[in-house]
Amino acid sequence: MGELSRIWRESDHRYRLVAHECGNCKRIFFPPRDVCPICHRDSIGKMREVELSGKGTISSFTVVHDSPRAFKRQRPYVLALIDLDEGPTITAQIVDTPLDQIEIGKRVHSVFRRIHEDGPGGIIQYGYKFAVDLS
C-alpha cells in the first residue's frame, strides 16, 4: 500500500506539474518542497503552490535500450533532462517523437500519459511525459 499512497500523494504534481514557489527568494521547486533549500527557516510558511506551463527545452537526453520490463513495449525510449521555462529542471520521458528528431535545445511540451500499472488488477499511475513541439 506504500506505493498506492505515494501515487495518490503525488498526483497534483504528476498530473498538473504543481510546483512550490518560495515566498522569500521566489525560486520555484519541482517536485514541490515544503522548505526552500536556499532560504531554510525564512521560507517556512511561505511556500506557495504554482502550476507550471509544461513548456521547456531539452538540456540533455539518453536513449534507453535496456529497459525495465514495464517499458518493454516502448523501447528504445528517450529520457531527457528538461529545463522548464519557470526554472526547474526535470527528468522525463520523451514520447511521440522519432529518435532522429530529438536534440539538445529542442522545445518540448508536457503530455498526459500512463506511467505504470501495478499488474492487470492494480492501480494505474498517470503523469507527465513530454513531446517535441511541432516546428
Binding site: 516502448q74 514520447v95 503530455v111 498526459f112 500519459r113 500512463r114 506511467i115 494505474i124 498517470y126
Partner: peptide, 16 residues
C-alpha cells in the same frame, strides 16, 4: 494509441 495512451489520457488531452 501509443502503449501509454488510454481513454483517460485522451480525455485529459482533449479537455486541456
Amino acid at each position: 494509441p501509443a502503449p501509454d495512451e488510454d481513454t483517460a489520457t485522451i480525455a485529459v488531452e482533449a479537455a486541456r
